[in-house]
Amino acid sequence: MSGFGSSMSSANNDHAVPLPPTCDGISSLNWSPTANHLVASSWDNAVRYWDCQVAPPSVSSQPAQWQVLPKSESTAHQKPVLDTCFSPDGRFVFSGGADKTVRMWDLQSGSTDMQQIGVHDAPVRCVGFCQEKQLVVSGGWDKMLKFWDCRSPTPAGTFQLEERVYNMDIRGNVLVVALAGKKIVAYSVSPQIQQQVSMDSPLKYQSRCISVFPDQSGFAVGSIEGRCAIHYFTQKPGLAENFAFRCHRQDNSTKTESQVHAVNGIAFHPFGTFSTVGGDGVVNFWDKDSKQRLKVFPSVNECINCAAFNTQGNIFAYAKSYDWGKGASGYRGPQAQPNGISLHYVPEEEIKQRQKKGGKR
Rank of each mutant, 00 (worst) to 15 (best):
C228H: 03
V137G: 03
P298D: 11
P155E: 01
Q196C: 00
I351D: 00
R151D: 13
K182L: 07
R361A: 13
Q195K: 09
K295W: 12
D51C: 15
M114C: 11
Q292F: 15
Q194R: 13
C130W: 02
H120E: 08
V221N: 02
A328D: 12
Q62E: 15
F268K: 11
G181I: 10
V263I: 09
S74V: 07
M144D: 03
I224N: 04
P56E: 11
V176K: 00
V174D: 11
G218R: 02
V189D: 01
V221I: 10
S109A: 10
Q62T: 14
Y187C: 05
G281L: 05
P334W: 09
V263T: 02
S321W: 07
R151E: 12
G25R: 11
S10N: 07
T254F: 07
C130T: 02
T84P: 00
E257F: 15
E163I: 03
F94I: 02
L69V: 14
G358H: 08
G5L: 15
Q108W: 04
K236V: 06
P123V: 10
Q62K: 15
V260N: 11
T101L: 14
Q206V: 06
T256N: 12
E162R: 05
D99S: 07
D149N: 13
A308D: 00
V127S: 05
A317F: 14
Q53T: 14
A240Q: 03
D251A: 14
Y322L: 02
A319G: 01
N167R: 02
P334Y: 09
G281F: 05
H15C: 13
W43L: 12
P270I: 15
D113V: 01
G118F: 05
A46W: 02
K100G: 02
E348F: 14
D106E: 00
C52L: 15
Q355H: 11
C209L: 05
G140W: 05
M114I: 03
A267W: 12
R354H: 10
P18V: 09
V260S: 12
M114K: 02
G313I: 07
V81F: 08
G181N: 12
S58W: 13
G359P: 07
P88S: 09
D323N: 01
G139Y: 10
W105Y: 04
M104Q: 05
H261F: 14
K326G: 06
H231L: 06
E348I: 13
G97L: 04
V189Y: 04
P123D: 10
D51M: 14
E348D: 11
Q134R: 07
K352D: 07
G3K: 04
F271T: 15
P191Q: 05
V59N: 12
A16R: 14
W148N: 03
Q108F: 03
V59Q: 14
K182T: 06
R354G: 09
D323R: 03
N305Q: 01
Q312D: 10
N264I: 00
P338F: 00
G140H: 06
S190D: 10
S87E: 03
Q78V: 09
S95L: 09
V189M: 01
K360W: 10
C130K: 00
P70D: 07
P80E: 05
K255S: 13
G157N: 06
G333T: 08
I315A: 09
G325M: 06
P123N: 09
N314Y: 13
D83G: 03
N305M: 03
Y49R: 06
